[in-house]
Amino acid sequence: MKGLIVIVISTTMITCTKKNEEEQQNISKKEIIDKQFLTEKKQSKLTPDTVLEILKARNKEFSNDNLTIRNTSKRIRKSSLGQFPGAVILSCLDSRVPVEDIFHSGIGDLFVARVAGNISNEDILGSLEFACKVSGAKVILVLGHEHCGAIKSAIDNVELGNITALLSKIKPAIEKTNDFKGEKSSVNPGYLEAVTKANVLHTISNIRNNSPLLKEMESKGKIKIVGAEYHMETGNVEFLSD
């Protein structure tokens, strides 16, 4: 009986191995994430507009349910001595917002800064400056998202520890939606989305006002600072105009 069990397990393992090999053979090279942002030479040739188009195209791939297939081992080796991402994404802390996947990207493609409510402060600004001025990123993308807990908490005037100070940075976005027609509460999806978008634009304004370095780079066309909202139910990133 024991021998029979061993034979069954071995057969199963062989079947699984063959299946995995077949699946790997069925993956075309086009499906594996390339190294678009991985080398200094390629990064230097990219313009902010080109990077934006790449991000939009890759998000379309993600929202169309294409797998994010990465050659992780190869990327780790190639990126170990340097990094040359094309963009820096300032995202919310939310665990439902997998930034690299949303933009169908892998190791070495993107800088990602995460903080609840995708707000900006001195540390975030310093990180964005490093990404663009020192490491050559061409785009700063402030990424808000649907159903944001930080936005809901700011609307509800939550006060709790250091969360209180963080939420105070979202309050100006609430003030900017005073003309909203409808119920101004966190249970109203329309109002929540209005504040979410206003908060993204408010963060962009803070970046420009509080980082002369980044503002100058943008004015010279070296970078673009843009905003977007991630729609969880579809996977689509909606780019905003400010």
Results as ranks from 00 to 15, higher is better:
Leu125Trp: 05
Ile102Asp: 00
Glu233Ala: 14
Ile124Leu: 03
Leu166Cys: 00
Ile102Tyr: 04
Phe103Asp: 04
Ile151Tyr: 06
Leu125Met: 07
Leu52Trp: 09
Gly144Gln: 11
Lys74Gly: 01
Arg96Asn: 06
Ile124Phe: 07
Val112Ala: 00
Gly126Asp: 07
Ser28Trp: 01
Met217Lys: 04
Ser127Gly: 13
Ile54Val: 07
Ala87Ile: 04
Leu128Met: 08
Ala154Tyr: 14
Ser79Cys: 10
Ile27Thr: 05
Leu38Ala: 05
Ile107Arg: 03
Ser120Asp: 00
Lys222Glu: 15
Met1Ala: 13
Gly149Arg: 02
Asn20Ala: 15
Lys56Leu: 00
Lys35Trp: 08
Glu193Tyr: 11
Lys176Cys: 09
Arg75Ala: 09
Ser28Pro: 03
Val51Gln: 05
Asn236Gly: 03
Gly108Val: 01
Tyr191Ala: 10
Thr203Asp: 07
Ser211Trp: 01
Asp65Glu: 13
Leu167Gln: 00
Glu229Gln: 13
Glu159Val: 07
Arg75Gly: 01
Asp123Asn: 10
Asn188Leu: 11
Gln83Arg: 00
Gly86Ile: 04
Phe103Gln: 05
Gln83Thr: 06
Ile163Leu: 12
Lys74Ala: 06
Ser211Tyr: 03
Thr47Trp: 08
Ala173Ile: 10
Pro98Met: 02
Asp34Ser: 04
Arg77Glu: 09
Val88Thr: 07
Ser185Gln: 12
Ile7Arg: 13
Phe111Gly: 00
Asn157Ile: 03
Phe84Ser: 10
Glu53Asp: 14
Val187Glu: 14
Leu125Gly: 06
Thr17Gly: 14
Ser205Asp: 15
Asp123Ser: 10
Thr39Lys: 02
Ile223Ser: 04
Met1Arg: 15
Val99Ala: 08
Gly3Leu: 14
Glu183Asn: 14
Lys222Ser: 11
Ser10Pro: 09
Lys222Cys: 03
Gly108Cys: 01
Asp49Asn: 12
Glu238Gly: 01
Leu214Gln: 05
Pro212Gly: 08
Gly136Lys: 06
Gln43Trp: 08
Ser241Ile: 13
Val88Met: 08
Ile223Gly: 02
Lys2Asn: 11
Ile151Phe: 09
Leu52Thr: 11
